[in-house]
């Protein structure tokens, strides 16, 4: 089915020209993997006048680890992440999340930057980047800007990206101590599904914890109360039970076609429990291998 809306297509070869195009046109949209955009164009929910395909901007295709920081360029697909040695070794949680995104044919095209720019509440990358306290790096004609992930998501499909800005990459600081991570995602079946609840957890060697939920509020969110309750403590069953009691204060799930708020709330607790245990186990060098589903 062709797209009904007429638009102009550009494939700039320099980042400057790309930025020119999006700054000088009120109704421009960026095309990277296109797995969300093309659907929106077909459905008529996106009606841009110009589409700027950034796939010729080779600089944005980089996965780089330098100065203790991971750079994920705007053109890096989930398949690229899965195939990267540095990801598998240093950021196994990024690998675990990437593995749950859709299916191969989508992962070969879809990018993590595209994922956070679409900013749907159930996005897989959201909780992950929250627990890593990543930054979103954007460029415009005015220069560069670094947006902490906590300030990035403004609402359902709303981000802090301003007119004329292009996301160039995500940067993830490498934790300065040993971590164990876990990503748990709830689907209606084993195949590709939009998460009904997702949670990313990172346990640090010094008994610090970072926890972020997705699909249970308009944006992904850090579970600050749970984190401060747990921080400094060694995880045990009793502690987990207490922490679970805090979950209703943290999240506000809704009932929709995919799940009821009751089940979402229930599963958030189950997933938190299983996730935190696994994260700690992984921190200690055992536990399930990364990539194994906990639900």
């Amino acid at each position: 089915m062709s797209i009904l809306q007429d638009f102009d297509y550009f494939k700039p070869t320099t980042i400057e020209f790309a930025i020119d195009l999006i700054s000088n046109n009120k109704n421009a949209t960026i095309l990277a993997g296109g797995t969300d955009l093309i659907v929106n164009l077909k459905e008529g929910t996106a009606t841009p006048e110009i589409v700027v395909d950034i796939k010729s901007l080779k600089d944005l295709k980089k996965i780089e680890f330098k100065d203790n920081c991971l750079i994920i360029g705007a053109l890096v697909t989930f398949t690229d992440l899965l195939e990267s040695v540095v990801i598998k070794e240093k950021f196994p949680l990024v690998w675990e999340v990437s593995k749950t995104v859709a299916s191969v044919g989508i992962r070969n095209r879809a990018t993590m930057v595209g994922n956070i720019c679409s900013a749907v509440p159930c996005l897989d990358s959201g909780p992950l980047l929250c627990v890593y306290e990543a930054d979103v790096n954007v460029r415009s004609s005015k220069g560069k800007r670094k947006i902490p992930i906590k300030d990035w998501f403004l609402g359902n499909k709303k981000t802090a990206l301003k007119h004329g800005e292009l996301v160039t990459h995500i940067s993830i600081p490498f934790p300065n101590q040993k971590t164990g991570g876990c990503y748990v995602r709830l689907g209606r079946y084993c195949g590709e599904d939009l998460a009904q609840v997702n949670v990313a957890l990172l346990a640090f060697a010094n008994n610090a914890y970072r926890i972020a939920f997705g699909a249970v509020a308009p944006t992904p969110l850090r579970a600050n109360k749970i984190e401060s309750f747990l921080n400094g403590k060694k995880i045990n069953d009793h502690l987990i039970e207490q922490a679970k009691e805090l979950i209703p204060d943290e999240i506000s799930p809704i009932t929709d076609i995919r799940a009821t708020k009751e089940y979402r709330m229930h599963m958030a607790k189950v997933m938190f429990e299983r996730g935190i245990k696994t994260a700690v186990e992984r921190l200690n060098g055992d536990g399930l291998e990364y990539g194994e589903s906990l639900v």
């Binding site: 297509y9 296109g34 797995t35 093309i38 659907v39 589409v51 395909d53 044919g105 070969n108 095209r109």
Partner: peptide
């Protein structure tokens, strides 16, 4: 609609011909 693009499978219904 799967085809290979530079050796990798993609859903050709989500690709602009121009791409």
């Amino acid at each position: 609609c799967t085809v290979m693009l530079d050796g990798k499978t993609v859903k050709s219904c989500l690709v602009l011909a121009l791409e």
